[in-house]
């Protein structure tokens, strides 16, 4: 099987490796870059645990080949915290709202939410739920995750669905 060179910038650092064309971006990040925070929950593009930012867009790294990422800039969960090492607003909100339990799906959620709130700084509750629907969590029942997004967006207390039925 032929091999190809991949040159990418991952979390601000240049990486170059010679890989098989069939190597997924997820396996490239995990095995070549030793960035194991990107998790594989299904390897068929549904669960979202492997979500990373490729040129700013949230992408499922299990569905992309490493060679397709040639020349791009990638951000993984390891590169999401603020430059001084403190948690980003999204990470901090997940912590405050008990938005994670086992932590396996968490990197994918944090990445997806980071991209979502960048593009939709004032989301409605409905749009939060729709945005989160591409990531699966089996522990939290999504309650803490939805609250974390509200918290990070500064929309806590608005537009809630409990109490009244219309």
């Amino acid at each position: 099987m032929g091999e190809a060179v991949v040159r990418v910038i991952v979390n601000g650092e240049s990486r170059e490796a010679t890989v098989e064309p069939r190597l997924t971006l997820a396996d490239f990040l995990r095995e070549e870059c030793h960035l194991t925070g990107t998790h594989l929950g299904c390897e068929h593009g549904v669960c979202g645990a492997c979500t990373v930012l490729v040129n700013g867009a949230a992408v499922r790294s299990c569905l992309m080949l490493a060679v397709q990422a040639e020349g791009t800039e990638i951000t993984t969960i390891e590169g999401i915290a603020n430059s001084d090492g403190t948690l980003s607003a999204v990470q901090q909100a997940f912590r405050e709202a008990h938005g994670l339990q086992c932590g396996f799906c968490t990197p994918g959620f944090v990445i997806s939410v980071t991209a979502f709130l960048r593009d939709h700084p004032e989301p409605s509750d409905q749009s939060i739920r729709e945005a989160l629907s591409g990531n699966l969590c089996r522990c939290t029942g999504y309650q803490g995750i939805i609250n974390a997004v509200r918290l990070a967006a500064g929309t806590v207390g608005e537009d809630r669905t409990t109490g009244a039925i219309t």
Partner: peptide, 13 residues
């Protein structure tokens, strides 16, 4: 949370 939120959890894989 500190390790899980930053990608530093260590799972078997």
């Amino acid at each position: 949370d500190a390790r899980f939120l930053t990608g530093h959890g260590r799972f078997v894989d």
